[in-house]
Amino acid sequence: MSAFEALLNRRSYSSVGDDAPKRKELLRLVDAASTLADHKSLRPWRLIELRGDARDRIGEGLAKAEGKKGHDVEKYVRKAHRSPLVIAVVSSPRKGKLPEWEQEAVASGVAHNLSLLLDEAGWGVFWRTGSHTRHKAVAKAHELEPGEKLLGWLHVGSKPVRRRHGRRKPIDPKRFLTRL
């Protein structure tokens, strides 16, 4: 499949199945995803692999960010278990001349490349973000270093057995590509 076809065919799956890529396959895909443009090759990102009970930390951090306790925490933990593999996408800006926004763009690019590669490999993927990605409790749950920022989570699992609904609603590219 060409990159063009991969981009046209990519879809987010709001729910995925119980299987997920093994670590060896994931490492290979992360290696390929890292080949994007990265000014000065700073690699201002990292990914956190969460499987099994490690996913509880996401839910617990989100519940704490919402001020929830007791049984209410379980709801958030269940949401974190919507997929067998969760990959936290972290911006890890490096000191220097490059602005932080440019470094965050690189981290986002790695996540997008990885989602395309996972889709091409036959895995279902959806990216979750939210207002609490920058909350202290969520950062603590992910053991983020000072200065790091959580950009969201890639939820990964087997693709559900359902028909694809064809291509997304097309855009008018002339509205988005302008000339000076």
Rank of each mutant, 00 (worst) to 15 (best):
R134S: 14
A137L: 06
V110F: 08
K159S: 06
L85S: 04
K75I: 05
D31R: 15
E104Q: 14
V90Q: 07
R175T: 04
A3T: 11
D38W: 10
R162I: 05
E100D: 09
E143M: 09
A139F: 03
S41N: 13
A54P: 08
R179D: 10
L50M: 05
V161S: 14
E25H: 09
A80G: 07
W45E: 00
A107N: 01
R82T: 07
W101Y: 14
L42M: 08
F4G: 07
K64R: 14
R55C: 04
L151R: 03
Y13S: 06
L150Q: 05
R23M: 10
S34F: 04
L144G: 04
S83N: 03
S92P: 10
R55T: 02
H71E: 15
E66D: 08
G157P: 01
S108E: 00
K140A: 10
G130S: 05
V86H: 10
R10N: 07
S115G: 05
W127G: 01
V90N: 05
S92T: 14
F176C: 03
V30Y: 10
A88H: 03
E60I: 06
R11E: 00
K24R: 15
L177F: 15
E74Y: 09
S83A: 15
P93H: 01
H132W: 05
A107C: 02
V106G: 00
V90A: 06
R134Y: 08
